[in-house]
């Protein structure tokens, strides 16, 4: 059987398949359908320093080959997570990665600092790209200086463990942002977060989402995501994690060919809660069919 293990900025994954933050809850929601132990890693809900109620309903609408969401980082805050949720989910064989968001640089750094001592949290993924909260998130991800500032502060607060920075596609040059966070010590970059979009109910003459605009995900964004992964993989030396519209094993391989060392599966979990297992199986099968002994061979071969 081919080697599927990959290394993401010092973190060894048994295979390249991870779950995308905000689409996989805390993992527990999916235990009736999959064996979490088989995942490369599971990235959980966006976590902030203080509790957040999120945006008003309606928060989602289906769009052609995708969906718009405006959840707005609803979560109970990092302390609640550490006390009540972490103990329940820390013991899977696969790696637990926490996705971190903040309204300002200090919030990001403090959240990272509180997660740092937890042995069961193997890495954090810093979301500098959420389009759904007014006061922050994407503001940092859309300028090189903002992205660099957050990365620098989190790097100091989170030394010696794997730091992944999740990039926004809502920029003119994602490669520039990637270089900026690499320079500040990010171990890896993941991309893409959702593309900012909008949809209107023409009968009611009002937007479908309470926030008017929202984040587009699903197959609709895939070609954009593949292109960005390809550009970023050429621009940086750190490993790239690819995501955006991966619905099956074929799509996952496409991202790896474009330069992704690992991949994340998001919206597809809503369509088929067992999709992650099928993607792992597909990778094994793909390697066998193509006579590949190590999946790392195909990364970035385009």
């Amino acid at each position: 059987m081919a080697n599927l293990s990959v290394n993401i900025g010092g973190l060894e994954l048994q295979n390249p398949v991870m779950t995308a933050s905000g689409t996989f809850g805390y993992g527990e929601e999916f235990t009736p359908f999959i064996d979490i132990n088989r995942l490369g890693a599971y990235i959980i809900k966006g976590t902030t320093l203080n509790p957040r109620q999120g945006n008003d309903y309606p928060r989602m609408v289906e769009t052609p080959a995708g969906m718009l969401n405006a959840v707005g980082l609803q979560n109970k805050g990092v302390d609640y997570f550490i006390e009540h949720i972490y103990p329940r989910i820390k013991d899977y064989k696969s790696h637990l990665i926490v996705n971190v968001s903040g309204a300002n640089v200090d919030d990001y750094a403090e959240t990272a600092r509180r997660l740092h001592p937890l042995d069961g949290v193997k890495a954090i993924e810093v979301n500098i790209s959420c389009p759904n909260v007014k006061e922050g998130g994407m503001a940092f991800g859309t300028t090189t200086s903002g992205a660099a500032a957050v990365t620098k502060a989190v790097r100091e607060a989170y030394p010696g463990k794997t730091l992944i920075v999740k990039l926004s596609p809502n920029v003119t040059s994602i490669a520039d942002i990637a270089r900026a966070v690499e320079a500040e010590g990010a171990d890896s970059v993941s991309l893409i977060n959702t593309l900012m979009g909008m949809s209107i109910d023409v009968e009611k003459r009002r937007p479908h989402l309470s926030t008017v605009t929202g984040g587009l995900s699903g197959p609709a964004v895939r070609p954009v995501a593949v292109r960005m992964v390809w550009q970023v993989a050429k621009a940086v030396k750190i490993p790239v994690v690819g995501l955006g519209g991966i619905m099956n094993g074929r799509d996952a391989i496409e991202f790896m060919l474009a330069g992704a060392r690992a991949i994340e599966i998001g919206t597809a979990n809503f369509v088929d809660p067992a999709v992650t297992m099928k993607v792992i199986d597909y990778m094994e099968d793909y390697c066998q069919r193509h006579g590949i002994s190590d999946i790392n061979e195909i990364v970035g071969c385009i």
Partner: peptide, 17 residues
């Protein structure tokens, strides 16, 4: 009958106050 995506409590799209 709120609009739903996952149906599993994972996406937080279907919330009611």
């Amino acid at each position: 009958e709120n609009m739903m995506a996952c149906g599993l409590g994972a996406c937080l799209c279907c919330v009611e106050k």
